[in-house]
């Protein structure tokens, strides 16, 4: 899918868009280089894997404050364990799994769960535009941006299983099924069929919305 307007100047240098900094096959090599003191390798790891970690945090619908702390905890612990990770090639799964467990701990520690009806999620997609969002909101990109916002809102309204799967699935660069499995605690074999079902359900929601 090419969409020139979205790939305008502000996003050309996003390190984690498709074809971004980290090819998953290089993860193990980057980890080993980082262990040996290569700061550029660490930077590539952070930039390449942060969207995955973030997607896990967001999939669990933590508050901003909790989510930020989980994200930091995951990266602090990853840095701490860097030279001791048994399977460097699977660092993505390590990060995803650590993020998941920290998210579950947060949810467990909350006396009052605010899993749904979180107005901020919708606000983020409608009213509280970041400067970056405003930038793409130029005339020629308006339709495109509007469709993406609708998609995001429809995703937010889906059931937990689909919402979580799709949020992690669409991290950039695309996570492997092993990483998604670690992020959500679901079997690798169930991801393909679930993905298909959820994408089709989302499309149906979009169609229904268009018809309304």
């Amino acid at each position: 899918m090419r969409c020139g307007t979205l790939h305008s100047a502000a996003y050309d240098d996003m390190p984690y868009t498709r074809g971004g900094a980290v090819d998953r096959t290089e993860v193990g090599a980057l980890v080993r280089s980082a262990v040996d003191g290569d700061a550029a390798a660490w930077k590539a790891l952070v930039e390449g894997m942060s969207p995955l970690v973030w997607s896990v945090v967001r999939a669990h619908r933590l508050s901003d404050a909790d989510g930020h702390e989980v994200y930091q905890t995951v990266w602090f612990r990853f840095a701490q364990h860097l030279g001791r990770i048994r399977e460097p090639d699977k660092a993505g799964s390590w990060l995803a799994s650590t993020a998941r467990h920290e998210c579950l701990k947060v949810l467990r520690s909350l006396t009052r769960l605010t899993l749904t009806d979180d107005p901020r999620v919708l606000d983020r997609a409608s009213d509280d535009r970041t400067p970056e969002e405003s930038l793409i909101d130029s005339e020629e990109a308006a339709d495109r941006a509007e469709r993406l916002r609708r998609l995001w809102q429809e995703l937010d309204g889906m059931g937990e299983r689909c919402r979580q799967l799709l949020r992690v699935l669409v991290a950039s660069p695309p996570p492997s099924y092993g990483e998604i499995s670690a992020a959500l605690g679901i079997a690798v074999g169930s991801i393909g069929p679930l993905r298909q079902r959820c994408l089709r359900r989302l499309r149906a929601r979009m169609d229904a919305r268009g018809a309304a």
Partner: peptide, 18 residues
Amino acid sequence: DSLLEEELRQAAAVLDPV
């Protein structure tokens, strides 16, 4: 399906970046 997934990926990068 794949096209929709890619659209969602763009939406994630634009609307919910790190």
